[in-house]
Design a protein around this nucleic acid. Structure first.
Lengths: 354, 354
DNA sequence: GGCGCAAACGTAAACGTTTTCATGGCAGCT
DNA sequence: AGCTGCCATGAAAACGTTTACGTTTGCGCC
């Protein structure tokens, strides 16, 4: 009521019991008479008592907080990931400490170290994190789950997006709808997703269009690089029948290049991307792409981490993979589109902030 | 080295000094001989000693963590806001505890209460938070900054987006470029942003196009409601010369309605939105809109909160407002656009996740 | 040499919990 | 009636820091 927050002692005194009993009641440990429980709860409520987390975790050694270490992500990917993690965490009574938008290995190391003692476990998504990094920076007792990482570790579970399977499915679809000659716009060479997507492209071509030459032009995930790649592809002869870009932004850039040259999509050439960013369905023609269920990624990662935290549940560390779905719109020519019907967005891109 | 983390006592014993001295050295409090300091630091390093945050904050009453309580936000708005907050927090050595995507007043209350004792202060963005809510749920000593909130409180600073000024600027621009008759598609009646934007529209019309009738049709921030509004506006006579939608999604829906009816934008009618979501520049024609510097919002909010935490710096609580910029593209007819040049996005919408 | 003073350092209390262990009472059994 | 054992409860230790306060030490000055 006054200036000082109520402590467990205040509750105990007021309820005329010992602090031990208060603790037992509030933690549901049993061994307390129903009447006593009632009194304690009433008093606690009346005093607006909330246990002090610092004291609690000092003695228990648990913080009920998990840390998320993320790179400089943006837009939907970031928000969906956090949403998935946050929801799953809340469902388990865990809190979420976020350290995002760091860049470079030193930055990531600092983030990880700063979390020491503040979290029970960590979710790490960073291209700079490998086995050596973990060895160096992760305290002994901290468990962690790695997202989208090539590392194979006996200690830390890894959860990946199945970029390869997604790419294969899309390429297969393109081929099956009559485009034998599929070209690929690659992402940054050092990017794990980009690598996997390219592998998928190669595998699918080998399997479903054997004998066809592989056409790969370099990109770096930016719209601008997609534009350049598009121009480069148009100059090739024979011109490919379909273009599969390693992400949507490059597909969009590529689309501009095609429009500029008067090439019709999908009439003259089919086009597909990867990610299913929000814009994908709003451009003309709407872009066929590979959708990643990012919120699920976050949720599953947290569930796996939570399992690690529970000493009873001793599932071994493993590498797991989350599938993608291809979503077929008009840009790949497999589907006729109505012209002016407004889309049904999955969610409004900016729900009212207040 | 082994299974247990080193404590300050271990360091003290190993360095043959008292725990007090270790504390003094590691906190840079002075009163310790340089030689002693050196020894302590060496030992601390060797033992890989890191202070226990729980114990530390138990005694100091500070967590060096701030909490962000956010509603169910999405996409750019969410990621930019977090980015702004995170960056500013990191710069101050603060950690960020996030509780997002909650919905409803009970949910928000639970989030706020759960943070008690885990954070030094809070950033709150929620339509359910008013003075009574704070009174009820916020512990005495916690400071907080309210984002985008209509509450006026002597205790808590409020930081708002200047929706009104942004709307005024856009309407003024529309009028100045020759569209006297500007119609408005409103947002949800209960939404604070929406209210302010409508007020801005009214004010600007009264000031810059006196005598012109106000045309307002209802919307609810969804694309679909924008589509309906667009059809409704086309049926009006005289047909308005320009349409200003309270957010971009509605503007997009409205655009579909116009396209469907064969009405050219901006030739037959000018169109503008609010928010500058990423899609805005990708639709045809690119949408003129009002841009909110969301990362700045987060950064400034955190700075204000940090000031509150510092007892020395006693700036009084105040209501502050963050300006918006109008960004003129082609949909309002003030600017001729090149057709196929790829845009330069501010940033890639999905930087490589690994 | 005694005195005072400041600097360096140590002792111990305090923070608010959880948890172990001891205690007392009471019921049920022999 | 006396013993056993269980159950509700309380006292107190422990968690790892910070910090107020007390003690020692060294040193300059009379």
């Amino acid at each position: 009521m006054t200036t000082k927050n109520a402590t467990i002692k205040d509750v105990a005194r007021e309820a005329k019991v010992s602090v031990a009993s208060v603790s037992r009641v509030l933690n549901g440990l049993g061994g307390v008479t129903p009447e006593t429980q009632k009194i304690v709860r009433e008093v606690a409520n009346r005093l607006n008592y909330i246990p002090d987390n610092a004291a609690r975790s000092l003695i228990t050694g648990r913080t009920h907080t998990i840390g998320a270490v993320l790179p400089d992500l943006y837009g939907e990917f970031f928000s969906e990931l956090i949403r998935g993690i946050d929801l799953a965490a809340r469902a388990r009574g865990l809190h979420l400490l976020v350290s995002s938008s760091h860049d470079g290995v030193a930055d990531a190391a600092a983030a990880v170290r700063a979390m020491r003692g503040r979290v029970d476990g960590m979710l790490i998504l960073s291209e700079y994190v490998d086995a050596a990094f973990l060895e160096e920076n992760l305290p002994e007792k901290l468990s962690a789950v790695l997202l989208n990482s090539p590392v194979k570790s006996a200690r830390y579970p890894v959860l990946n997006i199945d970029n390869r399977a997604g790419a294969i499915a899309m390429v297969q679809h393109l081929i099956e709808t009559g485009h034998q000659q599929v070209a690929f716009i690659s992402g940054p060479k050092t990017n794990f997703d980009a690598q996997q997507r390219e592998k998928g492209y190669r595998a699918a071509m080998t399997k479903h269009a054997p004998g066809m030459p592989l056409t790969i032009v370099d990109g770096n995930f930016t719209e601008e690089s997609g534009y350049r790649a598009g121009r480069e592809l148009l100059a090739k002869k024979p011109r490919p029948q379909a273009v599969f870009a390693a992400n949507d932004m490059m597909a969009i850039g590529c689309l501009y290049a095609f429009k500029e040259a008067g090439i019709d999509v999908p009439g003259d050439i089919a086009l597909a991307g990867f990610d299913d960013i929000l814009i994908a369905r709003y451009i003309t023609p709407p872009l066929s792409t590979v959708q990643v269920r990012i919120a699920d990624l976050g949720r599953i990662a947290l569930d796996r981490l939570a399992a690690l935290l529970n000493p009873a549940d001793s599932t071994p560390a493993s590498v797991e993979t989350l599938g993608c779905d291809i979503v077929i719109r008009e840009s790949c020519g497999a589907k006729k589109g109505s012209v002016a019907a407004p889309n049904k967005p999955r969610r409004s891109p900016r729900p009212s902030p207040t």
